[in-house]
Design a binder for these strands. Structure first.
Lengths: 409, 409
DNA sequence: AGTATATGTTTATTGGCACAACTAATCCAG
DNA sequence: CTGGATTAGTTGTGCCAATAAACATATACT
């Protein structure tokens, strides 16, 4: 007999006290500063939010004192009136720590609020079938090196986020299943043991799927709001971003695109079913179809496509993959009502080859394009190397934007 | 250079004043009363929300005075202490008006805050290729009859929501495309002309896809939080509900499942592509494959399945449809990370026949079930006749739950 | 009848925002 | 170069909503 009124309107579970009001408005101000095209002034923020100038001044002053916001030099605008003091997120004061465990490396990356690079450690090694305990300890040690350096430079740690190639339980929980690592039900939280500052608060340490975090990095660096990030590696995953936020689903396992059926009677897949996307467009399938050794890189494949021996076969492999990717993406785009695709992972280097084939399928199958007049975009990722690591660090440092109140004195 | 910090944390675009605090807490209290398993007391609400008893008392009193909440008789609990005053949403005070235009009828339905039926008008007629202006005028007239009756009974109108079988622009906007009506770019807002009370506020009139609204009705009546509602009619649509909220996507066109490809080389579809789900499991395809006339009902098909002439053929048609539906739902469930499916529309009557075939496909293909231990559910809809109409009325009356402040004196 | 327990109300206090008047810093016109 | 116009930001007052603590109310238990 319940009218389903789901989330309380504020997002937090509980009631709002006056304190919360301040917390929310602090976060609002941070969000405006973070999201503005150009550094806004106090007056500009007041106009954008509807808050009173005096209120905004007080909030901004608190954020400046906490080292979350920095005042820039006043610029000469040429217009009448007292010149504004532009505000931006402070650099070099607060750090987010991104961690990643993947099949062939461990990684740690630290970024500040502006997204600037602070520090990084990448340790290449084969982690297929590795012992979770040892691997986590190694990553913990690597993270310790980075945080020691940050502390020495006077940076505060805003959060730690771990990127994993598998199903994680919505944010907090343990790793459920990482097929390519061969891990199952691993409590990964201890990787952050001892990293939390005294008053860390909930959500200091989070875990997420690598595709979701790579999508976050893409959103940041590519300045995109709504798109599907397709990560082509050994497995194929996707991160769905709607209005700047990652769609996670019930358990945080949304976007598992790799095992969407392309042809139910197709070749068997490692997941136990048949004809999944991975069987047509996963790294192994793609390289094998192109006649390349399993250790080859996407760049090798791209080179074959340029001409010479094996070009035709490589092109056929690409065409098959593009057709399958297009078919699955068409489904995804119709279901999510999103009209932009970003090709990441190994697909980034292959984007020029894959793009046209994918677009062709999409243009005939995506309703929003055919009938709604929406324009389709298929682009290569701009998020650089180890995007999941970047996304993890961004997700971590974002805590200072979404709940700045915990960082005030 | 923007860290993508998307929606301001409060959900509204602007800053929060003290007023907003009260508004949000009023909505919170309404939400707790609406969502509770048993009528809660003031003290219970205080405990559930973390708000002070005195605060909750003040908020509840305001809601009672506004006619949004009713006090029940004090019950004898058997425990020590002063007995609590149970609270519930008030019935017969505020009404939500649902409107629907579909291929073979116009409908108006009014529900109150408790979900109780207040009034209803269904006008059966063939609206394929109808003139939008005339049809809207007819529906407006029908709605007028209902609202006149409501007004006479002293009910206040909380909102009006229109359900349409097509793509509507995210909530407010005009109808973009309704293939089965043959409508394109119709400004449907005038159907609510004159229905708004003086201080209606924004969002009084909304438009949404019939599948989304039917899903909302299912969430209400079936008390489900996260599921995919599949509506099988001439077209096939889906409403995706996550945590009690409908997922709309970028333009509000999410859940367009009917044109997800099943076999890219399959028979041509009305959308211009080939092998869409609709070609295998749409009403026309299903009846034709079963050897039934186009005017037959799903009940006719169910009767054939029971035995007698044509049983085998009907069963083959069902098996084909179930396979196709299962394949597309497997994709949908992997992408959205949702493990419950509700069969609605014509599929409701066919659920006993379709269910096993669908479940078989899903159990082999949905990752959350195979590897995450989530249990799959395929159920028939419990939302009754014209679920989109019910959902529309619920969406309309919900305004009094999500923003009760506008209903205070 | 008296005590324990739980619900709900009353009254004083506090935190945070709005409003309005003010200061500050620039452009521009004469 | 001086004074008005314009825009940015600050200061002080008042108000609103929530809190806390004491109180009133209504039951059960002994």
């Amino acid at each position: 007999m319940l009218p389903p009124v789901p989330v309380p309107p504020n997002g937090t579970a509980g009631g709002l006290r006056q304190e919360s009001l301040r917390e929310l408005n602090l976060a609002l101000v941070m969000g405006v500063i973070a999201g503005a095209d150009a550094p806004p002034s106090r007056a500009g923020i007041a106009a954008a939010t509807g808050l009173n100038k005096a209120t905004v001044s007080a909030l901004v002053d608190a954020l400046v004192e906490a080292g979350l916001v920095a005042e820039l030099r006043r610029t000469v605008t040429g217009r009448a009136g007292r010149p504004a003091t532009p505000l931006r997120l402070a650099g070099g004061t607060v750090a987010g720590l991104g961690l990643e465990i993947n099949v062939d490396y461990l990684g740690v990356r630290a970024l500040d609020l502006t997204g600037a690079h602070l520090d990084e450690r990448i340790q290449r090694r084969d982690l297929r079938g590795s012992q979770p305990g040892r691997t986590l300890a190694a990553l913990r040690a690597l993270a310790g090196q980075v945080t020691a350096g940050l502390e020495a430079r006077g940076l505060r740690l805003a959060g730690v986020t771990l990127a994993l190639p598998g199903l994680t339980d919505a944010g907090q929980g343990p790793l459920r299943w990482a097929p390519n690592l061969g891990w199952r039900d691993v409590d990964v939280r201890r990787v952050a043991a001892g990293l939390e500052p005294a008053a860390a608060g909930p959500g200091f340490f989070t875990v997420d799927n690598e595709a979701n975090l790579a999508a976050l990095a893409e959103a940041h660096i590519g300045a995109r709001q709504s798109f599907i990030y397709v990560s082509g590696e050994i497995g194929i995953g996707a991160g769905v971003v709607v209005g700047g936020q990652v769609f996670r689903g019930l358990h945080g396992w949304a976007g598992e695109i790799g095992h969407v059926p392309v042809d139910p009677a197709g070749p068997p897949c490692s997941c136990g079913a048949r004809g999944c996307l991975e069987v047509y467009a996963g790294k192994r399938a793609l390289l094998a179809a192109a006649g390349l050794p399993a250790a080859a890189t996407p760049e090798d494949l791209a080179a074959r496509l340029a001409g010479g021996r094996g070009q035709a076969r490589a092109q056929r492999a690409i065409d098959t993959a593009a057709g399958a990717i297009g078919q699955v993406l068409a489904a995804t785009m119709n279901l999510f009502d999103i009209s932009t695709v970003v090709l990441g992972g190994d697909f980034t280097a292959l984007a020029p080859a894959l793009g046209p084939g994918i677009e062709e399928v999409l243009s005939g199958r995506v309703l929003a394009a055919r009938w709604g007049g929406a324009s389709l975009t298929v682009a290569a990722s701009a998020a650089g190397h180890h995007p999941a690591l970047t996304g993890a660090a961004l997700a971590a440092v974002r805590r200072a934007i979404t709940s700045p109140a915990t960082f005030l004195p």
